[in-house]
Design a protein around this nucleic acid. Structure first.
Lengths: 120, 120
DNA sequence: CTGTTCGGTCACGTTGAAGTAACCACCCTC
DNA sequence: GAGGGTGGTTACTTCAACGTGACCGAACAG
């Protein structure tokens, strides 16, 4: 798994990505047309949405039935793990932001310290 | 959450990434030194490992105690969701690979079909 | 039959993540 | 005090992801 050429690591790289997560979570609620997906995943460009959907189709997670994209059975098994990630992100945003502020402030203080030292 | 400027989406983007997943899973077993991490995460370069660890420290998920990197309490809450992703990847690699082969073969056949049509 | 929306494709250009290699301070040993 | 391992930093390059805008065929609306 931690070996560079292990296919399960490639597989992890494919699913551990924000577009995959958002698309799978949206399609789990209901099949959607291209345009509906495009509107719901705010800020995604057509190109990136097309590329993401093609990749998900290739990996057997999404299929297109006429005009609607829907999860395959394989894709449905992915929903819970990805949903858990999303839930984590929503639950702990604040802690993450506070940690970032503390870290950046500490970095600023270190820079100030260096500047003061240079004044000596 | 699906809004482009929502901070929880930024947060999701940060944790939904293969290096984050591998590092958090390894550090959950035990604190590790830089060199030990570097050896276990096969194929990662020093630069990328340094960058990833700095980002995780900034986000308050990892802290460095003397020479050992360890998960913070916040980082520990991330383990289960990421572990679930890893488990999924290991469980379904074969299905994904088969889907890819089918998809690529179908694409080849479409190309052949076009070539035949051109012969007419 | 004209215009419009939908679901793309194509040909770029730009950005950000990752690779490469050289260098460095610190510690340890011998 | 010379040499090796550890834990980085720095500068430069490469590559994949993403953005942009123009175009296009099919469907449908008027």
């Amino acid at each position: 798994m931690f070996s560079a050429k292990c296919p399960s690591r490639a597989s992890l790289a494919r699913i551990a990505n924000k577009w995959t997560a958002m698309i799978v979570i949206l399609l789990h609620e209901q099949p959607l047309r291209f345009g509906e997906l495009h509107r719901q995943v705010d800020g995604i460009t057509k190109k990136v949405l097309v590329d993401s959907l093609r990749a998900l189709e290739r990996d057997g997670m999404v299929e297109k039935d006429d005009v609607h994209y829907r999860l395959t059975p394989l894709g449905r098994t992915l929903h819970d793990p990805l949903r858990a990630l999303q839930t984590w992100a929503e639950s702990y945003v604040d802690d993450v932001q506070q940690a970032q502020e503390r870290y950046d402030e500490a970095a600023d203080n270190r820079l100030l310290g260096v500047a003061e030292a240079n004044l000596d």
